[in-house]
Design a protein around this nucleic acid. Structure first.
Length: 334
DNA sequence: TGTTTTCTTTCAGTTACATCA
DNA sequence: GTTGATGTAACTGAAAGAAAA
């Protein structure tokens, strides 16, 4: 059995970044509305939870795809623009997002492909003010803080994750110029600020998954790396699922207890009825030819069962096998 | 048109670090 | 100051799907 989770209206397609940003700029507006209790969890059974790509429409062009093939891709996602057949191969100047140090040695690096497209899209969009929510002395994420990106020695160097890592390592090297204690052998854990977390929570309420464009835009607004936003959403989905699983387990546990109790009660009743049946004379066990109604509870029973059920009533026992009918004067019915 | 390859995205599981009692 | 528990950012490998070859 799979569990369902509803996190609001998935039909909405766009983040309301500006609105959320205004919330960020006005801290008194939100931060209490981001707890899980406000997420509007809904529980259901027999409905698939998530699933691969079930919530995502992201089949967008990747950096490598566009690097390798400047020809257009067949499908687009959520407004991601790719070059048309008449577009020349892209060879654009990379505009580093503001989560990179300004003095990055990578500045001016030239790339082509979807990353460029994405960056261009970013530039084309209205200038969304980037978020600077961390206090100056905060230990939270800002690319100016130390980045201890562990060198994991990836085998493949072609997927997007690796590219992100490469960018991060580049940034880390740049950052290390100002931070001598970083030796690259340990990974530093950066904690997001409350505002950043609240902003991400708001985003998560709208979409539990992000397409690349949304991810980049969100990262830009929060002064985070896209990879951080991606990881945050992954972990957030995992937490949501875990929490929902706990709720479902509690519900099923209660159901099980209730059914166990009901079963126990019915077993007891059957046992009592059998005891009564064996103790009644044979002539009272003849097959029913008429229906009789119990005067006390106004339920109808067959005449064969009636003596036993009446006795059961007299004993104060429940008789779930009786058929409830609308109230009538106690009399025989043919 | 069908098959294989390549790549991306997501998830489940895990690790590592920060924080708190 | 130390230690264990807890929360969570970050990482890894596998699976699934889409697009290209």
């Amino acid at each position: 059995m799979e569990l369902a989770l509803s996190l609001g209206d998935n039909t909405k397609k766009q983040f309301s970044f500006l609105e959320m940003n205004s919330k960020i700029n006005n801290p008194s507006a939100s931060s209490t509305s981001t707890s899980d209790k406000d997420l509007g969890f809904c529980m259901g059974l027999d409905v698939a939870f998530g699933g691969h790509k079930s919530l995502s429409s992201s089949s967008s062009p990747s950096v490598e795809d566009e690097k390798k093939k400047p020809v257009p891709r067949a499908k687009l996602s959520d407004g991601i623009r790719v070059s048309s057949p008449v577009d020349p191969p892209l060879q654009l100047q990379l505009h580093f997002p503001n989560w990179l140090p300004e003095n990055s040695p990578q500045g001016g690096r030239t790339l082509s492909g979807a990353a460029m497209v994405a960056e261009e899209e970013e530039e084309e969009e209205e200038a969304v003010p980037s978020m600077s929510v961390s206090p100056p002395d905060s230990v939270t994420s800002s690319f100016q803080l130390d980045f201890g990106i562990k060198s994991y020695g990836y085998e493949r160097r072609s997927n997007k994750r690796d590219i992100d890592d490469e960018v991060e390592r580049s940034a880390s090297r740049a950052s290390n110029e100002d931070n001598d204690e970083e030796n690259g052998s340990t990974r530093k854990k950066l904690r997001l600020s409350k505002d950043q977390s609240a902003f991400l929570e708001d985003s998560f309420k709208e979409h539990s998954t992000l397409n690349p464009k949304q991810k980049i835009a969100l990262a830009k607004q929060l002064n985070l790396r896209p990879r951080q936003v991606e990881v945050w959403f992954q972990n957030r989905r995992a937490r949501t699922k875990l929490k929902q699983t706990e709720v479902d387990c509690e519900y099923l546990k209660r159901c099980c207890e209730s059914l166990t109790e009901e079963n126990r009660r019915l077993q007891k009743e059957v046992k009592e009825l059998r005891t009564l049946k064996t103790s009644t004379p044979f002539y009272m066990q003849l097959p029913a030819t008429t229906l009789t109604m119990c005067p006390s509870c106004e339920r109808v029973a067959t005449s064969a069962a009636q003596p036993a059920t009446s006795a059961a009533h007299n004993l104060g026992l429940s008789t779930s096998s009786l058929i409830p009918v609308k109230p009538r004067p106690a009399k025989q019915v043919s």
